[in-house]
Computed example of a mutant assay.
Amino acid sequence: MPVLRVPYTDPLPLPRIIPPSAKSTDGAIAALLEFLAPSLPRPSVPQSSISSKLATCAKGAEHHGKTLLLTGAGISVASGLADYRGANGTYTLNKTYRPIYFNEFCENHEARKRYWARSFLGWTTLDRARPNKAHRACGELGRLGVVGHVITQNVDSFHPAAHSHLPTTELHGYLRSLVCLTCRNEYPRRSFQEHLARLNPTWAAFLEEMLASGALDTENPDERRKKGLKANPDGDVHVPDAPYTTFRYPACPVCLATPPPKPGGGVLKMHADADGAWDTSSEGGVLKPAVIMFGESIPAATKVAAEEAVDDARRILVVGSSLATYSAWRLVKRAKERQMPIGILNMGGARGEESFFADVQEGNTGREALRISENAEQVLPEIVRLLRERKRS
């Protein structure tokens, strides 16, 4: 068994709502407006026709720099995708679930068969899913001049799709592409899916049966279990007792066409069967999803981009993340060390949040610290509506 352990699979403690007035949805919206107020462009005209709360936010709301958004799986649940640690999350309902480790994928042909078979079945759900109102609201906050950058832990590419104008750092990569472990060329996931279907006609027929039965039309875990399936995040579907060892996957087409050189001279051996499936006699050309697998390091350039985004902002708002992964938690820790106001909008607890909010001053109305437990798809669009009203007036 791998030494690595998935962190924080048990439910985290419920949060302390900050400020206390944010325990209701209306109070949470008012507090979030207060938190975002310093990022608002300075108003050029008096605010006279909007709510008293917006007027209060506008007074003295000097432009101290834009807000950075850090998002997690919770923001994509409304798009029909599973999360990890929510009430219906994989770690909550499936205690035996363990993601594939990076070293397993790189070193084990059978592990890759199992991974790609499950991904083949689950990809359709992810491919059909679309950004929801919360993703689009993030983009509108960018247009309004409030948000300057998004860092997302998600690999669904919904943020770039929803707001191409707003810079997005995909901290953990993305599922829309494959990357060759040898030559580092990328390959579109949709084309890869078609190749998997050609290599595995029996599996393709099974997938068609599941689609026809509606088994993949729901993320409800009870309904999927009735159909013999277990759905996990990131386009992964487990079918108990499935013959994973029969599954075949393509080799990198670039490496097949031009075998890469060996470090010590010569070229790597590259072999595929008549259909283009990777052969075990090959010395490279293994395609991997362009995501950061468990146990894999985030590329240095991505780390730097995320850290610079924190340093360039003046406050950070976490949306839909429990911060269970260190790569995300350390960014909020960096913001704390820089004495930046921290806000968290997440249903359920977040890792280490008590330390982030340990020094909240009495009388804080949300501007210096914010912790609310609300549905992002409901709250963020309402924030956008209110800010647009302010801008019009």
Rank of each mutant, 00 (worst) to 15 (best):
Q47W: 04
S51T: 15
S52G: 06
S52F: 03
V45Q: 15
A73W: 00
G74M: 05
S79D: 02
L70Y: 04
V77M: 08
S51C: 14
S48G: 03
K66W: 02
P41F: 03
S44T: 14
G74E: 08
T67R: 07
C57K: 00
I75M: 09
H64L: 11
C57W: 01
G60T: 13
P46N: 00
G80M: 05
V45R: 15
R42W: 01
A61Q: 06
L69P: 02
S44M: 12
Q47N: 11
G72H: 12
S49A: 13
A82C: 14
V45Y: 13
D83A: 12
K59T: 02
A58H: 08
A61Y: 04
P46D: 01
K66S: 13
L54A: 00
L70P: 01
S52Y: 00
S44K: 15
T71Y: 06
G60L: 12
H64T: 14
T56E: 15
S76L: 10
A73T: 09
L69W: 02
E62Q: 04
T71S: 12
G74K: 02
V77N: 02
C57R: 06
T56M: 12
G65E: 02
T56I: 04
T71Q: 05
V77P: 00
I50T: 14
H64M: 05
G65S: 02
A55M: 12
S48D: 01
L81R: 07
A61V: 05
I50F: 10
P43L: 04
V77I: 14
H63V: 07
R42P: 01
G60E: 12
S49W: 11
S44E: 10
A58T: 12
L70Q: 05
L70M: 14
D83P: 10
L69T: 03
S79G: 08
L69N: 03
S51H: 10
A73M: 04
T67L: 04
D83I: 13
A58V: 03
